[in-house]
Computed example of a mutant assay.
Amino acid sequence: MAVDVTIKITDREGQVHEVQAPTDMAMNIMELVRGYEIAPEGTIGVCGGMAMCASCQCYVTSNHELPEMGPDEEAMLSEAFYVKQNSRLGCQLAITEDLDGLEIELAPES
């Protein structure tokens, strides 16, 4: 049985959104942000989730065990602006039950 998980997303203006995310739709964090319209249209997921633009960069602020970065994500973050130790690309974080309670902050637009 599929469950929804709760994720807290701090937008670029500092407002916190606590949203429900389905675990049975093969969605990722970038798609969740777009679906809830947490960032203005055209400012997140510009490349469509291909790890080629870093517009969905976020900072993971909770203490969650996340999957390791793939080479495409590492390469994109090595060229992105505003990168921190806890930076990840939202398009590369699949929504699973393990993400319940995840807290992220959207990185500034570059």
Rank of each mutant, 00 (worst) to 15 (best):
G70W: 09
F81H: 03
E65V: 09
T61L: 01
R88T: 10
V83E: 05
V60E: 06
S62K: 02
E65A: 06
L66S: 11
M69L: 14
E73C: 08
E79W: 01
A75V: 00
L89S: 04
L66N: 13
P71H: 11
T61Y: 00
A54C: 09
R88F: 03
K84G: 02
P71T: 14
E74S: 10
A75C: 09
S62F: 03
P71I: 12
H64Q: 13
A80E: 03
G70D: 15
C53Q: 11
G70Y: 10
H64M: 10
C58G: 06
T61C: 00
D72Q: 15
L77F: 08
P71E: 15
S62D: 06
K84P: 03
R88L: 04
E79T: 07
S62G: 02
D72K: 14
E73R: 11
S87M: 12
N86T: 14
S78G: 08
P71M: 11
Q57Y: 02
K84N: 10
F81T: 06
A80Y: 02
M76Q: 12
L89E: 07
N63G: 09
P67S: 05
G70H: 15
E68D: 15
E68K: 15
T61P: 00
C53D: 08
C53W: 07
A54V: 05
S78Y: 02
G90V: 02
G90A: 10
L77A: 03
A80C: 03
S87L: 08
C58I: 12
H64S: 09
A54G: 01
N86S: 14
A75L: 13
L66V: 14
M69G: 08
L77H: 06
K84R: 15
V60K: 05
E74I: 07
C58E: 07
T61N: 01
A75G: 04
V60A: 05
Y82W: 12
L77C: 05
L89A: 07
L66H: 12
V83H: 07
Y82C: 08
G70K: 15
F81I: 00
P71C: 02
V60N: 04
K84Y: 08
E79M: 11
P71L: 11
E65W: 00
C56F: 00
G90E: 06
N63T: 13
M69R: 15
R88K: 11
S62E: 05
G90W: 02
Q57A: 01
H64G: 09
